[in-house]
Design a binder for these strands. Sequence first.
DNA 1: TATTGTTATACTCTATAACTATA
DNA 2: TATAGTTATAGAGTATAACAATA
Lengths: 149, 149
Amino acid sequence: MAEPANRPDLAAMIVPLGRSLMAAEQPILAAHDLTMWGYVVLSHLRGTPTRTQAALADAIGADRTRIIGVLDELQQRGLIRREPDPTDRRVRLLSLTAAGRRLRDTASAAIQRNEERLLAALPPADRRALLRSLRTLAALPRDRIVGTA
Amino acid sequence: MAEPANRPDLAAMIVPLGRSLMAAEQPILAAHDLTMWGYVVLSHLRGTPTRTQAALADAIGADRTRIIGVLDELQQRGLIRREPDPTDRRVRLLSLTAAGRRLRDTASAAIQRNEERLLAALPPADRRALLRSLRTLAALPRDRIVGTA
DNA sequence: TATTGTTATACTCTATAACTATA
DNA sequence: TATAGTTATAGAGTATAACAATA
């Protein structure tokens, strides 16, 4: 058993790659006055307006307490709306403003322009398969990956 | 300009996926009494015995000061050798012991067994293309990805 | 003087606990 | 009493600065 390792661990390839991609985003985000979490929030709200801050935190894999300062700033800058739900005044309805959407789309375009530079290293068919596969894996629920520890 | 975003950012897919994969490794590593950095060190030394601790730290993307405790423990447990270079007694020659190699291979097999579960979600051709592509991207030097910020 | 490794310290990021308000 | 949000605090992980040994 235990044949010789003929491929690196998935994690060993993906984690450092992720770190590099994050580092590559940093100057782009800074140019748009966005923190990484700020950008993540905008990106998530762009697809799916969210009913509670807790649900948002959960969806983006952050702690509830961590996103509060982020939301404060995004709201102050008029990039998101954060209105008490008339039905239940404890919850804050979260959505993007037009300005928020514009900013996030501009930043995203710049980020993807940079990413295209890397993807150019791949044959077109592999490139497509990579993106398709990553979408599939990224869509898996976290505990499907982690296993019921 | 700025056509509607038709794909998620690479980073947005890869980073959370990496976090989940790391979380999935955790219990497996714990079962072998390994920390993540410990495992990373063993894995790197397995492929390439390294001449200085600084070079090792650099190769695995860690700080010089961070790996010292890790090396201490691995050495104490007889998993690595760490001998002063007779040529230059400042440097420590680092390599795996037989026990170190065995342990890392066993852990790696368990990790990859778990990863196979996920890869099974992909069509075989995509799966191959994904691994091939990740290898290519992971082999890129970091500053090729980050750009000369 | 420059470099390897080490130790001690400070900083950042993240999670935990305690509090307020609504229900 | 339970839940959403917030604030204050503590903890983990990481990097920075100062030091000792060797070249």
